[in-house]
Simulated scan of single mutants.
Amino acid sequence: MMLRMAIGDRIRTIRRSFNEKGVSQTGLAKHVGVACHTVSRWENGIYEPTLSQFKKIADFFDVPVAAFFPAPTHQTRSIDKLNQLTQLAKQLTIRDLDEVLLYAEYRLQRESEAASKAQSVLPV
């Protein structure tokens, strides 16, 4: 039951904050192909969406399905940061996206090198 409540809270939060204005339960229900009272029941933890409904909801809000499930705090922050990055990236030009990708690859390489260096310093 606690999981259903957590899922419902996430659906409500994402729905209300979608595109700054939010979307109604009726609007979400139409997209998913369910009755509007079904969305209300999801949000109140009475029902939970099926896997195919989760996929439709996630596609509608442009978030991963995992966004609806509770995660440890650091994972939630990470998911929120990824969602924020995705929304910002949609506004960039292809050239800017290429630059962001190059920077991400640079950061990963730097972290990998630092980890390798730390491994080589450990006493045997």
Rank of each mutant, 00 (worst) to 15 (best):
L51M: 10
D62T: 08
Y47N: 15
T86F: 12
K81W: 08
R15L: 01
Q91K: 11
A58I: 01
K30V: 10
S78L: 15
V34E: 03
A35G: 10
L97S: 11
S17D: 05
P64S: 10
P49R: 02
G27E: 13
T38Q: 04
F60T: 07
E43Q: 07
T38Y: 02
A58R: 00
E48C: 07
L97K: 14
K81F: 13
K56T: 00
D62I: 04
E48F: 06
K90N: 15
A29G: 00
A58L: 05
G8Q: 01
L28E: 03
P64L: 03
N19Y: 09
A104W: 08
T26P: 00
L108M: 08
Q87G: 08
H74E: 15
L28K: 05
K81Y: 12
L108V: 09
Q84S: 13
V34S: 03
F18D: 02
L102I: 07
I94Y: 03
R12Y: 14
C36H: 12
N19S: 11
L101N: 15
T50S: 15
Q109M: 10
H31E: 12
F68V: 02
Q53R: 00
T93L: 02
V100F: 02
Q75I: 14
F68P: 05
I11R: 00
L101F: 12
V32I: 07
T26L: 13
L88P: 00
Y106W: 09
E99G: 02
T26Y: 10
H37Y: 14
I57N: 04
L88M: 08
D80C: 05
W42F: 14
F69I: 02
G27R: 04
C36L: 08
Y106H: 14
Y106D: 13
L51C: 08
T93Y: 01
R10V: 01
L28A: 00
R10A: 10
N19L: 13
K21M: 09
R110E: 08
I11T: 04
L101Y: 12
E43W: 04
F54G: 04
Q109I: 08
S24A: 03
V39M: 01
L88G: 06
Q91P: 06
R110S: 09
E105A: 15
G45C: 03
I46S: 09
A66G: 11
L102W: 10
S40L: 02
K81H: 10
T50N: 02
A89K: 08
